[in-house]
Amino acid sequence: MSNDRATSTPFTKGLGFFVVLGIALLIILGIFVSPADVNQGESVRIMYAHVPGAWLAYLAFVMTAVSSAAYLWKRTRSLTWDRIAGASAEVGVLFMGISLVTGSLWGRLTWGTYWTWDARLTTTAFLFVTYIGYLAVRGLGGTAHQRARRSSVIALLAVLEIPLVHFSVVMWRSLHQRATVLSPDGDIKMDGLMLFTLLCGVFGFSVLFAWLVSHRQRIMAMKDVQQTTAIDVAVAERLKEAQA
């Protein structure tokens, strides 16, 4: 009874252990142990959330695209792929949001501006909006397979759209550049401990991604089951009422 209503499995519990470990290590190293940067000072610590967040978001969007393609391909068609795609997109949007906010805060401290029309930043902002749109399409309703087909097509169209947006922004910036665009990664020489902290973050966030998505897609599966069985339950109840 309790087991089929929970979304945790031994696998997710194992993942959860590594998530806690990774994030705890990241916090300790990132906030207390790692040194302040020579040029950026304490603001470099924002990077330990920003870079893994961006990494996770990109990972999530790739996952959404791959799972959507897997759903559309007849031989691997399964609603599980659709749910993984949806769950990944949700997590991706969340972490892209975190990454954009932390990035602009860091930019304010380091570059003196919240935003610059750099091609990578602009494309990232477009990715963010595009996947918010994707999530809106998922909420359109209909049967599970209707939702799955619609959203997988939209996810694949996004794969087509993003390179075009990126390319046009690059073209726009390179032809109309007035000031030198600050490169987001610059030529920062990384301290060993800093790099290790960053890698901890990437590891921790990646496991967190797997953990969130596996829980989220099981919740989605339960919702789908509930939606299909709700009618049967209601019909059975009405029948009972009629017989009584």
Binding site: A136, L140, V165, S168, V169
Partner: peptide, 17 residues
């Protein structure tokens, strides 16, 4: 409300070009 959200990001290259 859905249409502008979906359409505007996609047509950004057209606007720029």
């Amino acid at each position: 409300t859905l249409l502008p959200l979906l359409l505007l990001p996609v047509v950004a290259p057209v606007l720029i070009g």
